[in-house]
């Protein structure tokens, strides 16, 4: 009997969790349960990131996505989860349509995913762990330390790093911050009158 490949074992574990809870998000109609399943699905995904050697991305997924975004989402769910909005049933027609389109899409994607031979297996013994956090940081500042030796001009493309996207994202975040504060600002309403959207 072959030795258990622990990487595969944990991959299987997290993959089942992620897929199972993703499907649970689709299946359930209770919005609070949906948020809960989504949390677990995204948490399991971060496990997959750790397995793939992307420590920093995994930790960020937990910190920003699960710890920040989803808490916000649940906050929103709790603000609006009242009576009829907790479970809104989807009409059967929509469900059939969604399942049909989704199934077709899934078949297409799965076919694409398993088409390339080189993708099916990896090296039996993966290389030693790499620390990626500071490399990522350097890349964001514009220095690609992993491509310094690249001779192939095609592969060496992107040497400039990600300084520009990084700046764009920073400005974007600022805009979003202001924008969402503007959207959620206190508004004025006439007592007993129509909503004043000024």
């Amino acid at each position: 009997m072959d030795a258990i490949n622990w990487h595969s074992f944990f991959f299987l574990f997290f993959a089942l969790l992620a897929c199972g809870f993703s499907l649970a998000v689709v299946m359930t109609s209770n919005i609070v349960h949906m948020a809960f399943y989504l949390t677990l699905a995204l948490g399991a995904t971060s496990g997959l990131f750790f397995l793939a050697g992307a420590d920093f991305v995994g930790a960020m997924q937990l910190l920003i996505y699960v710890g920040g975004t989803l808490v916000l989402l649940i906050f929103g769910v709790m603000l609006t989860a009242k009576g009829p909005f907790i479970s809104m049933k989807t009409s059967a027609g929509d469900l059939v349509l969604g399942a049909g389109v989704g199934g077709a899409l899934l078949v297409l994607l799965l076919a694409a995913a398993t088409q390339v031979d080189a993708w099916r297996v990896s090296e039996p013994s993966p290389p030693v762990a790499q620390v990626t956090a500071s490399r990522l940081g350097m890349a964001l500042l514009g220095a690609r330390v992993d491509k310094l030796d690249e001779k192939d001009p095609v592969q060496a493309r992107g040497m400039s790093g990600y300084l520009l996207p990084f700046e764009i994202v920073s400005v974007h975040l600022l805009v979003v911050l202001i924008g969402s504060a503007y959207l959620a600002r206190p508004k004025k309403r006439m007592v007993g009158g129509p909503v004043d959207t000024a």
């Binding site: 993708w119 297996v121 039996p124």
Partner: peptide, 12 residues
């Protein structure tokens, strides 16, 4: 359980 997983599995 015994075979190493590849990119395909993640893609699935």
């Amino acid at each position: 359980l015994t075979q190493p997983v590849g990119v395909s599995h993640y893609l699935i």
